[in-house]
Design a protein around this nucleic acid. Structure first.
Length: 598
RNA sequence: GGUUCCGUAGCUCAACUGGAUAGAGCAUCUGCCUUCUAAGCAGACGGUUUUGGGUUCGAGUCCCAACGGAAUCACCA
């Protein structure tokens, strides 16, 4: 609720008092944006007030409307339609608000650190294969939420936990030892993550062949899948790694290093980054102490075989394992340890946000519950930013079946499509090759980011590679295009020696479309607020699209440069500045850049 | 089987968390470039919000049931 709504609610309370002698709390006044088919700017829903007025909704609305117009100078007129009291605000108010905000980058953006310190975790890949479409949604979402929380005033620490140890990387290592012949990213001309992924696939192929062989020899299937020699070798490697065998650790470091180089390249293309990296090889033993402490305090219990559990049946969950009977850690153990470590790494941390797919909802429910039971201050503030899967027309992505959409390939394809489109339109032929390359990435990557961010995170979504992503309609290129038009028009005004520092505007020049457009820009602070509260970039995406769409309509038949009436021209310049600013800032929160030309 | 989430135009998604005649884009069709960038604008077409009950001034939104889909319930991560 913005300042105007608060003011109107206050006035409405007074009106109820004056008209009906009723005491009503301001928060019980229902205010909303007037729908565009009706005259007015803000609407009071009067149905709930009829029990105070003891008259019909229409009569109630009229009584309140008359009082408000007479007693609040911000309210110019009222109309009652059924049970809705539509109020028209004086244009001077909107004009003042526009003047206050139109050149303000910080409009709607809270001062950094004015709110608590929060951590946002995202990406968190395994190191045995390249990033794919699912990671793209995860990364864009996590990064954008981090930016949004920052805009809402939080100090934000972006982290990932890299899953660098375990059987998966050992599989790639075994395959490389067996078939690699010393191949490196340089010698193969492959990105490091792609090379390691190639050996993960090679492992799987060899594994399947060996299983088939064992089946022929008469072994039953489940045994064959456990006994395949290459799998036993991978397990042996894992064991040796845990023993600290220097040769194995060396190979592990080398291959992970290749992967990190590859990931770094992809992250850099994607435009995401991190403030601190956590590695599972550093954290996987953490948490045992916490489990021991919890055992001592009776939060956990030990079964006869020595394994440690927690009983969460009171919370509607069930029993959960925390330590195996051989004393080794499981995922949950590690996550408890990591969570607690992060509080000491970043004193004053108020909450942790985990950007992880919805298949792990149960895990995080359990994790947060355990942390609370262990008495971790603030664990109740933690949030699992759960998002739905990205599905292909043929269903879920499966790496084994080769239906994975590779992140690098997709990014490249997006830039190529942007290039084709631009060449067809032929508006940027005078740009240098370098400028063009930048532009194609801004547009192509922007289209992809917007596509993935405009839908609510919780929903699973469809991605059809063959249909590809649109560059027209409700897309980032549409928004970028309108930004470019606005920027270009403002540049032409400046070239024409028009003074661009608008400091006063005659409020009588506006038409209804323009007043409405101003109001749309003024919604921005509450959009940022709402998006931060719900960890939801789609609210930002939808707002900036609606704003851009309205601007595009307005642009069509509201000339600026050629407008002879100086006060009208100045007013329109200020309005254009306001919209262009907001588009750039809002898209920035989605990680999408604005080109200068397109 | 238990728990959780979801079901809105042919397709992909919205709907300010209970308010007015459910909105955009794509696709299809019709207009608009001598005018600040047509990746645009205007218009047409498209809906029993899966179904059936209930709650109330008022339901896509809340409650119950059915149907359909997804995830999860591992000494996996």
């Amino acid at each position: 609720m913005d300042a105007l709504d608060q003011r109107l609610a206050q006035s409405a309370v007074q009106a109820c008092e004056a008209c009906f002698g009723a005491q009503i709390a301001p928060e019980h006044i229902q205010l909303q944006q007037t729908r565009k088919e009706f005259e007015g700017d803000r609407t009071v829903v009067v149905f709930p007030l009829t029990r105070h007025s003891k008259s019909s909704p229409e009569e109630t609305g009229v009584a309140l409307g008359q009082w408000l117009v007479a007693n609040d100078e911000l309210i110019k007129a009222y109309q009652v339609v059924k049970g809705f009291l539509n109020l028209t605000i004086v244009p001077v108010y909107w004009t003042e608000q526009l003047l206050r905000t139109h050149n303000l980058d910080a409009f709607g953006i809270q001062k950094k650190g004015s709110r608590s310190k929060v951590m946002v975790e995202y990406s968190s890949p395994n190191t045995n294969k390249p990033l794919h479409l699912g990671h793209l949604r995860n990364n864009f979402l996590g990064y954008s939420v981090a930016r949004i929380l920052e805009a809402a005033g939080h100090e934000v620490i972006k982290v990932q936990i890299i899953n660098d140890r375990g059987i998966h990387i050992c599989k790639s290592m075994v395959a490389w030892q067996m078939f690699g012949e010393g191949e490196t990213p340089d010698s193969a001309g492959l990105k490091g993550d792609k090379l390691v992924g190639k050996y993960y696939v090679a492992f799987d192929r060899a594994f399947k062949e060996e299983v088939a062989e064992l089946l022929v020899q008469g072994m039953d299937e489940s045994d064959a899948k456990k006994q395949a020699p290459i799998l036993l070798k991978a397990h042996a490697l894992l064991h040796q790694w845990e023993q600290g065998n220097s040769e194995v650790v060396e190979l592990w470091k080398t291959m992970n290093g290749w992967v990190y180089d590859g990931f770094e390249e992809t992250y850099s293309e994607m435009g995401v980054d991190f403030d601190k990296l956590y590695y599972e090889s550093d954290t996987y033993l953490l948490g045992k102490d916490q489990v021991a402490a919890g055992l001592g305090s009776g939060v956990f219990f030990k079964k006869e075989d020595g394994s440690v559990w927690i009983d969460l049946s009171d919370e509607g969950l069930d029993e959960k394992l925390l330590l195996r009977n051989d004393g080794t850690a499981v995922y949950m153990t590690q996550d408890i340890g990591t969570a607690i470590t992060r509080y000491s790494d970043f004193p004053g941390l108020e909450r942790q946000v985990y950007t992880v797919g919805n298949e792990q909802e149960y895990h995080f429910k359990v994790l947060f519950t355990i942390l609370m039971k262990l008495g971790v201050e603030g664990a109740k503030n933690n949030h699992h930013l759960s998002y739905g899967m990205v599905e292909l027309p043929e269903g879920k992505m499966k790496s084994r079946e080769g239906t994975v959409v590779d992140a690098d390939d997709l990014l490249e394809e997006m830039a190529n499509t942007a290039e084709e489109m631009a060449n067809e339109l032929g508006k940027i032929d005078d740009l240098t090759e370098e400028e063009k390359a930048t532009l194609f990435k801004q547009v192509g990557y922007g289209a992809l980011k917007y596509f993935l961010l405009k839908v609510s995170p919780t929903k699973s979504m469809m991605f059809d590679p063959k249909a590809s992503i649109d560059f027209i309609g409700n897309t980032a290129p549409f928004i970028q295009f309108n930004y470019v038009r606005a920027a270009s028009m403002l540049a032409k005004c400046a070239d024409a020696d028009i003074d661009m520092r608008i400091t006063s505007i005659d409020a009588s020049v506006w038409d209804a479309d323009e007043l409405r457009l101003i109001q749309q820009t003024l919604m921005w602070p509450s959009i940022v607020e709402l998006a931060a509260e719900h960890y939801d970039p789609s609210l930002v995406a939808n707002h900036v699209y609606d704003l851009t769409k309205a601007f595009s309509r307005w642009y069509q038949d509201h000339p600026v440069l050629g407008e002879e009436n100086v006060s009208l021209r100045e007013a329109r310049i200020a309005l254009t500045q306001s919209v262009a600013h907001q588009i750039r800032i809002a898209m920035g929160l989605l990680g999408i850049e604005m080109p200068k030309r397109m």
